[in-house]
Measured scan of single mutants.
Amino acid sequence: NQASVVANQLIPINTALTLVMMRSEVVTPVGIPAEDIPRLVSMQVSRAVPLGTTLMPDMVKGYA
């Protein structure tokens, strides 16, 4: 089972991601792979992401 990136806190719209905002977790459906966490740092979210939400490619500007 592949771990995905999950929000560790509420991430407001247009916030630049930092390591403390993200954790890896095995979830369904699968989201952005956990190994991409270093690449996500400083990228902005395109919408508010609630705590515990799996990050999907369309939620991060410039990821897809």
Score class of each variant (00 low, 15 high):
A64F: 09
G52K: 04
G52C: 03
V41E: 06
M21C: 03
V26T: 14
S42L: 08
G31V: 02
I32T: 00
A48G: 08
L51D: 15
R39C: 05
N14E: 10
L10E: 06
N1L: 09
N1E: 13
V20A: 11
P38E: 13
D58C: 05
V6I: 15
L19H: 13
A64K: 04
A16M: 14
P29G: 04
G52M: 05
Q2E: 12
G31D: 01
D58S: 10
D36M: 15
V20Y: 10
T53R: 13
T53Q: 13
V5M: 02
Q2H: 15
G62Y: 07
I13D: 11
G52S: 08
I32W: 02
R47E: 10
Q2S: 12
M59I: 08
E35F: 14
V49Q: 02
L55C: 02
A16W: 14
R39M: 10
V5A: 14
P12S: 10
P12A: 08
D58Q: 10
P33G: 06
P57D: 07
D58I: 09
A34F: 08
L10V: 08
G31H: 01
A7G: 03
V20L: 15
G62M: 06
V6L: 09
P33Q: 06
Q9L: 07
V30Y: 14
N8I: 09
M59A: 09
M22S: 00
A7C: 03
L55I: 11
T18H: 05
N14G: 14
S46A: 15
Y63A: 04
M43E: 04
L10K: 10
Q2N: 12
M21H: 08
Q9M: 14
T18Q: 14
V27M: 08
L40M: 06
A64I: 15
T53M: 12
E35A: 15
V30S: 13
P29D: 06
V6H: 02
V49G: 02
M22Q: 00
T28N: 12
E35K: 06
P50L: 07
G52N: 12
M59C: 04
A3E: 15
I13H: 06
A7D: 02
E35S: 14
M21R: 03
A34W: 10
G31Y: 02
L10F: 12
V41G: 02
L19R: 10
E25S: 11
V26K: 14
M59T: 08
V30P: 14
N1G: 09
M43N: 05
V26Y: 11
E35N: 13
A16N: 10
V30R: 14
T54Y: 02
Q9F: 12
V26M: 14
V45M: 07
V30F: 07
A7N: 01
M43P: 00
G62P: 04
V60N: 01
Y63V: 04
S46V: 12
M56D: 05
I37G: 05
L51G: 12
Y63C: 03
P57Y: 07
Q9V: 11
L51I: 14
M43H: 10
P57W: 09
